[in-house]
Write a protein that binds this DNA or RNA. Structure first.
Length: 297
DNA sequence: TGCGACAATATCTAGGGTCG
DNA sequence: CGACCCTAGATATTGTCGCA
């Protein structure tokens, strides 16, 4: 294949097609109409001698080759983006760039209000997309899909880089008119617990601390997001152990906040990024904003 | 069976390259 | 510099599939 004879714009179309598995959406993503994208797909099929996407009912699915090409194509596109963006530099006041970061519930609620205010003031044109943390986080960072991730990460290894934004401790919460008096270790174990089953923080630390003393708590309910948890505690006899800073954003007058009746080690909230984005002036600027924001917490 | 969603196709247009 | 050609993208339309 003669590379000079290949329209490298097709690489952009291929990237969008493989990621979206949808011709219409892929077209919207790169600013083409559906027929134009369909035409690009036809040219790619001709060029590569493979269907790349096959229709199954109403959906399109990647072929084996499509699946195999996807990470390579993504890496090529994102390397190109990073190269061009870093050469251009980054001007916050005029930038229209869209940044994407992942954040868990806790980090998001604690960091995002201040971060967004900071971005709005310094860079009114930039857009910030915050996505949930999925299993594919390392790949998303490596391919430039995400500029960074905020949360608790136990094993960060090169080429990923991390920086501790702040350390977080725990508090216990029960409803203000709860019949139980002081929250002692004994009453803590007698009560039913509400657990926030969000990965990366909280429950694990509590359970390990209890287990080290040969104790265990009784979990009556699990919720995926901590923002609903205080409202549930306010109307039930459940006890909730949660990161302390959460209470600053989810305050409820019906709640009584106490110290946990057992010592719980605090945990780090980190910013993680891929080394490749060190050469991306915009991503570097965004990281500086996040770090400055954490410092002001 | 009709409708909506989405991919593919037909046809037209505009922009860029080549050549005389 | 103008005529011509090629190609990508747009609009309009058709085909296919799933669902109520």
């Amino acid at each position: 294949m003669n590379l000079a004879a290949v329209d490298l714009n097709l690489l952009v179309a291929l990237d969008a097609l493989l990621r979206e598995e949808n011709v219409t959406v892929a077209g919207q993503r790169v600013g083409l109409s559906q027929p134009a994208m369909s035409h690009a797909l036809a040219r790619l099929r001709e060029l590569l001698g493979d269907e790349l996407l096959v229709r199954t009912g109403r959906r399109m699915h990647r072929t084996a080759l499509g699946h195999q090409l996807m990470p390579t194509v993504r890496r090529l596109i994102s390397d190109l983006e990073a190269t061009l963006l870093s050469r251009r530099g980054f001007e916050p006041s005029t930038s229209q760039r869209r940044f994407r970061i992942a954040a868990n519930d806790h980090a998001g609620a604690v960091m995002l209000p201040a971060l967004f205010a900071r971005l709005r003031s310094a860079a009114p044109g930039v857009q910030l997309d915050v996505l949930p943390q999925g299993d594919g986080l390392p790949l998303e960072l490596a391919t430039g899909e995400l500029e960074g991730a905020i949360g608790t990460f136990l094993d960060v290894a090169p080429p990923l880089v991390d920086r501790v934004l702040f350390r977080e401790g725990f508090a216990c919460v029960i409803r203000r008119d709860h019949p139980i008096g002081r929250l002692t270790l004994r009453s803590y174990l007698e009560l039913d617990h509400l657990v926030i089953a969000s990965p990366g923080y909280g429950p694990g630390v509590v359970d390990f601390a209890l287990e080290a003393r040969g104790l265990a708590r009784r979990v009556a309910m699990r919720v995926p997001h901590f923002l609903v948890a205080p409202a549930i505690v306010a109307r039930t006899d459940l006890v909730l152990t949660l990161p302390r800073r959460v209470l600053a954003v989810a305050t409820d007058r019906r709640l009584r906040v106490t110290k946990p009746p057992i010592p719980l080690s605090d945990f780090a909230v980190q910013l993680v990024w891929h080394r490749r984005s060190d050469s991306d002036a915009g991503a570097t600027w965004l990281r500086e904003q996040i770090i400055a924001c954490a410092r002001s917490l």
